[in-house]
Computed example of a mutant assay.
Amino acid sequence: AAHYMLDKSTVSRQVASLEKLGLVERHPDPSDQRTQVLHPTAAGTEALASTQASRRAAYRERLGTWTSEDLEQFAQYLLRYNSTGEGSSPR
């Protein structure tokens, strides 16, 4: 929650929704019983895989006509963009 500057209650509600849908389970952290660790259920793992496959297909469709040079330039821009945010907090 802190990393993404979200209120803990917001995250808690979202996790509760995922639990109700049967996508995640909470388990106590063996090293710190006050902490809970989220684990995907079989349904959660399947949903995530499906989402990732859909996302990859969308990228292939959108970038399928791009030349190798276009893709290389795009990759360089992404690397540049991502490196400028390292070490800084979101605003």
Rank of each mutant, 00 (worst) to 15 (best):
A2H: 05
H3Y: 07
Y4T: 09
Y4D: 10
Y4I: 05
Y4K: 11
Y4N: 10
Y4V: 07
M5C: 10
L6H: 12
L6A: 14
L6S: 13
D7N: 15
K8L: 15
S9I: 11
S9E: 15
T10I: 09
T10C: 11
S12P: 09
S12N: 13
R13Q: 11
Q14K: 14
Q14F: 14
V15E: 07
A16C: 12
A16I: 10
A16V: 12
A16M: 12
S17L: 12
S17D: 10
S17H: 13
L18S: 09
E19F: 05
K20E: 05
K20L: 04
G22P: 03
L23Y: 04
V24N: 03
E25Y: 11
E25M: 13
R26G: 09
R26E: 07
R26F: 06
H27A: 01
H27D: 03
H27L: 08
P28H: 00
P28G: 03
P30G: 04
P30L: 00
S31R: 03
Q33H: 12
T35E: 02
Q36L: 13
V37N: 04
V37D: 08
V37M: 10
H39T: 11
T41R: 05
T41M: 03
A42V: 09
A42G: 12
G44W: 03
T45M: 15
E46D: 14
E46F: 10
L48I: 02
L48C: 05
S50G: 14
S50Y: 09
T51A: 15
T51P: 07
T51W: 12
Q52A: 14
Q52P: 02
A53T: 04
A53M: 08
A53D: 08
A53W: 01
S54T: 15
S54G: 14
R55N: 13
R55Y: 14
A58H: 05
Y59P: 09
Y59W: 10
Y59N: 11
Y59R: 08
R60N: 07
R60C: 11
R60Y: 07
R62H: 04
L63M: 06
L63Q: 01
L63R: 01
G64K: 11
G64A: 05
T65E: 06
T65Q: 11
T67R: 02
T67K: 00
S68D: 15
S68I: 02
S68H: 07
E69T: 08
E69Y: 06
E69S: 11
E69G: 12
E69W: 07
D70F: 01
D70M: 05
D70H: 02
L71V: 00
L71T: 10
L71Q: 08
E72T: 01
F74D: 02
F74L: 01
F74H: 00
A75S: 11
A75W: 07
A75G: 08
Q76H: 04
Q76Y: 01
Y77P: 06
Y77R: 07
Y77G: 08
L79T: 02
L79Y: 04
R80H: 01
R80S: 00
Y81K: 07
Y81G: 04
Y81P: 04
S83K: 02
S83F: 01
S83C: 00
T84C: 09
G85K: 00
G85F: 00
E86W: 06
E86M: 13
G87S: 05
S88N: 10
S88W: 07
S89L: 09
P90S: 10
R91P: 13
